[in-house]
Design a protein around this nucleic acid. Structure first.
Length: 819
RNA sequence: GCCCGGGUGGCGGAAUAGGUAGACGCAAGGGACUUAAAAUCCCUCGCCCGUAUCGGGCGUGCCGGUUCGACUCCGGCCCCGGGCACCA
């Protein structure tokens, strides 16, 4: 054993041993319980950042812990390799995206290896590899055959100068980030996946995800947004009708106007005969497509001059265009009831539209104050014809019945969830395997022609490279009629790749099919670890894709991830660390200075995994000091000869020895629960630090004393091995063991060691702490109460007062209530 | 704007089921060792008061409530972070 702790010498040696022994390569074994531990794969941006280090250390600690519990643990790693940053780098550095990406992968793989993560590298995959994306192209054609994909027009951000589609991120305050031009909305035909066909199941199955944080399930449920209501038909003229969905048919008589989105057919139609409306629509078109943007805009609107007919009263209802109505959501039109909806109320106030109350807080009354805002609650109807006097609940049904009877509406379940638009007008992505033929129409690329490979040797001369500018790519023969045809030049949303990679890891070497039987052994993932920012989009798409694969017979499980740990973000200066904000911290400097174990210890100790972690450069030093302390302690113990920690010596221990031994087993109990159940790694580390501090203060050269000391050090080394795998590998050997620590069994609690004679309790008077007392373990309430009431300091507060009540919580607290 | 989180010493955090607020660590200050430095070890460390190893008062973003007892539960507010469908 080296004299002093030297991670730079020790860590590469230990890593070399793991590599030579193939310690972390895993094969299916029906006799052994499996544990699939997965961390969200990184985008190869160039360097690991602190968020990666945190994410992957958490996953590695869980993997190594489960391995010590005897599970067959599979922990894979790969690369989410398609995406926008590669195109930006290509423009900046004149290097093809593929080259840049593969270079980054090589660098980051080396960084991950330097951190000592227990990955099965034989399963590594990169989503930009045709051997990977050919299967999602194949799967897309299967979904096409099943009718689960379709084309429709949708809005994109358009940069009129660069003549290119921009991502939301690329629009800075309404202008293209490169050209600076005011962006416009533009309609483009795109491919969609029918995720709404699975809305009900995606919502219902949240109920079986007991291992997911409530927070994430709530966000997904709200995102899916199931609501029950009525679709109401408002006739515009003899040819046209407007369908609007409402969850409040009881307010139908309070409708005073209808608002449509600026892209709605009626709005476009009205603009043809009114220059004023045309200008308004043009203004509305100069804003980004995102919902956040639209909902924070000042509410603006304009009268179209058109009217719709109220389905029950036959009144003429004016139709307005409003900038806050989303064309994407529902029918792009809403019925407005300003008396009972706050947003409608504000719009009506601003434009002088009538506000007609129809629901009142008390039965039979027509009193409600709507001067300061809308009345949102349910109540009793008036001003509603035959429905006057009904409660909102009764009126819901009565009005729905009446509409259905008159063929002017029907009950409907509505979802906020929209179908998933998967087309991207970008180069660095997976080509959509479709050929457009003038004669045969849309033709999916036949299986034998897959993969449709993305040309990788390209030059970004003009700052943007759509596949449209590569005739060698898009000029093809139609697979059906063999005439000249055009290949689809859009690529998939990169969420497409990340929606099924977890299944592919189970059989990454299969070049004959997308998935195989091994998926049935490994799936579902037992533990998924990743950032909270993925709570909705990625995690919902992955759940959806899993169900698509199940229905295609490719896997058996309904849900992909049993347990989910969403780690908080590593913030710098109070905001998310990200490349685009330029506030990243390079962990490489820390690894170079302190080694991998210190960095791992620090990220696990600094905060509980689910919390955000505000980065600070100090405090790493303390982690390094602790490892040194443990090193010196083990060294000086081992130099006096290692002892066998067998049970006999523990039978008659003196007070100090028994007390240290109790501390050992209390710590094992706490740490096992902390690591195995609660994800409380920071307090598990603190508990080990406490135990180490006690061992340092324990100086007993007798055989039982040394045996207890040996037991303590073994326990600490075993419990810290998942976090500090390198140094614990060496320390475990030094404590006299031949089996490597990563294959050793997690320590067990000896219940006999936990027994205590006396227990400390707090005495309160009227809820204020007045004393602490020692009472025999297992003493009854009467005895405890007696001791408490005779404590010197307690007496000062209770004498000459009447005791009203005494509460005794055994083992914790006594509260004496006096008046 | 809507949905979801969070707010505790100088700092990161602890308090698992409503029962001792501040574990563990960082920073800081004082001391020991040393020619010196590094390393290491010891002591102090929420605020205020007193008769100062002890005792008292206050204290977990703000206001109010429930309870013998609230960081924890309930109602209202403020601030910070994440997501909002083309960043990943």
């Amino acid at each position: 054993m080296q004299d002093s702790y030297n991670p730079h010498k020790l860590e590469p040696l230990v890593q070399q041993e793991w590599e030579q022994q193939r310690t972390f390569e895993t094969v299916e074994d029906e006799k052994q319980e499996k544990f699939y531990c997965l961390s969200m794969f990184p985008y190869p941006s160039g360097h690991l950042h602190m968020g990666h280090v945190r994410n992957y250390t958490i996953g590695d600690v869980i993997s190594r812990y489960q391995r010590m519990r005897g599970k067959n643990v599979m922990q894979p790693m790969g690369w989410d390799a398609f995406g926008l940053p590669a195109e930006n780098a290509a423009i900046r550095n004149r290097v093809p995206p593929a080259k840049w990406t593969y270079g980054n992968i090589d660098y980051m793989r080396a960084q991950l290896k330097r951190l000592g993560f227990a990955y099965d590298w034989s399963r590594e995959l990169a989503t930009c590899d045709p051997e990977y994306y050919r299967w999602e192209q194949w799967f897309f054609t299967k979904l096409y055959e099943k009718g689960l994909v379709y084309r429709k027009k949708a809005m994109v951000n358009w940069d009129p100068v660069d003549q290119t589609v921009l991502a939301n991120e690329q629009v800075i305050e309404g202008h293209g980030w490169r050209s600076g031009a005011r962006i416009e909305r533009k309609e483009v035909t795109q491919w969609f996946l029918k995720i709404t066909a699975y809305a009900e199941e995606l919502l219902k199955d949240l109920g079986q995800l007991d291992g997911w944080p409530e927070q994430v399930k709530t966000m997904q449920a709200n995102w899916i947004g199931r609501s029950e209501g009525v679709e109401v038909i408002f006739d515009v003229d003899s040819q046209q009708a407007l369908n609007v969905f409402t969850t409040r048919p009881d307010t139908l008589f309070g409708v005073t106007y209808i608002a449509v989105a600026p892209e709605h057919d009626l709005a476009v139609h009205a603009s043809k005969s009114s220059a004023e409306i045309a200008v308004f629509l043009q203004e509305c078109a100069k804003t980004r497509v995102s919902e956040a943007e639209i909902s924070t805009l000042e509410k603006r609107g304009i009268d179209t001059g058109l009217y719709a007919t109220h389905p029950l009263t036959q009144e003429k209802i004016p139709i307005w265009v409003a900038n806050f109505v989303l064309i994407e959501y529902g029918s792009g039109a809403v019925m407005s009831v300003p008396a009972h909806d706050q947003r409608d109320w504000e719009f009506a106030e601003k434009f002088g539209l009538p506000i007609k109350p129809v629901v009142f807080p008390e039965q039979g009354s027509v009193c409600v104050d709507i001067s300061q805002g809308a009345f949102l609650e349910r109540g009793w109807l008036q001003n509603s014809g035959q429905f006057d006097g009904m409660s909102s609940d009764r009126a819901f049904d009565a009005i729905a019945d009446e509409l259905e009877h008159r063929n002017k509406g029907q009950r409907q379940v509505n979802y906020r969830l929209r179908d998933w638009g998967i087309s991207r007008q970008r180069y660095w992505g997976c080509p959509i395997p479709i050929i457009n033929c003038d004669r045969c129409g849309v033709v999916p690329v036949p299986e034998q022609d897959l993969p449709v490979c993305l040309p990788e040797d390209v030059d970004f001369e003009n700052a943007v490279l759509p596949l449209k500018s590569l005739p060698g790519f898009y000029e093809v023969k139609c697979p059906e009629c063999h005439g000249a045809a055009t290949r689809e030049t859009d690529t998939f949303d990169t969420f497409f790749e990340s929606s099924w990679y977890f299944a592919r890891y189970c059989c990454a070497d299969n070049d004959a099919s997308m998935l195989d039987d091994r998926v049935r052994y490994w799936m579902p993932v037992d533990q998924y670890v990743g950032g909270i920012e993925h709570a909705v989009l990625h995690l919902l798409y992955a759940r959806f894709f899993n169900k698509l694969m199940r229905d295609a017979g490719l896997c058996a499980n309904d849900e992909p991830f049993i347990n989910l740990l969403t780690q908080g973000m590593v913030l710098k200066d109070g905001t998310k660390m990200s490349k685009s904000k330029g506030n990243t911290v390079d962990p490489q400097n820390l690894i170079d200075k302190y080694g991998a174990d210190t960095v791992r210890l620090f990220v696990m100790f600094a905060a509980p995994p689910a919390h955000n972690l505000e980065w600070s450069d100090s405090a790493v030093e303390g982690s390094y000091r602790f490892i040194n302390k443990l090193w010196r302690l083990t060294k000086s113990h081992a130099e006096q000869g290692v002892t066998c920690s067998d049970g006999k010596l523990f039978e008659c221990l003196n007070g100090d020895q028994a007390s240290l031994r109790r501390k050992i087993h209390e710590t094992i109990q706490k740490v096992t629960d902390g690591v195995g159940r609660r994800y409380a790694f920071n307090t598990a580390i603190a508990a080990n630090m406490e135990l180490v501090n006690e061992v340092i203060g324990f100086d007993d050269p007798s055989p039982p004393g040394r045996a207890v000391c040996q037991e303590a050090l073994e326990a600490v080394v075993l419990m810290l091995a998942p976090i500090l795998p390198h140094v614990c590998h060496i320390l475990w050997q030094r404590l006299g063991h031949e089996v490597p620590v990563n294959s050793a069994a997690w320590p067990d609690v000896d219940a006999r060691a936990l027994i205590k004679d006396m227990v400390e309790m707090v005495v309160q008077v009227n809820g204020k702490k007045r004393a602490t007392i020692q009472v025999p373990t297992g003493m009854g309430s009467d005895g405890i109460e007696h001791i408490a009431q005779h404590n010197e300091n307690v007496v000062r507060f209770i004498e000459n007062r009447k005791i009203v009540k005494v509460i005794v919580v055994p083992g914790r607290v006594v509260n004496i209530v006096v008046n």
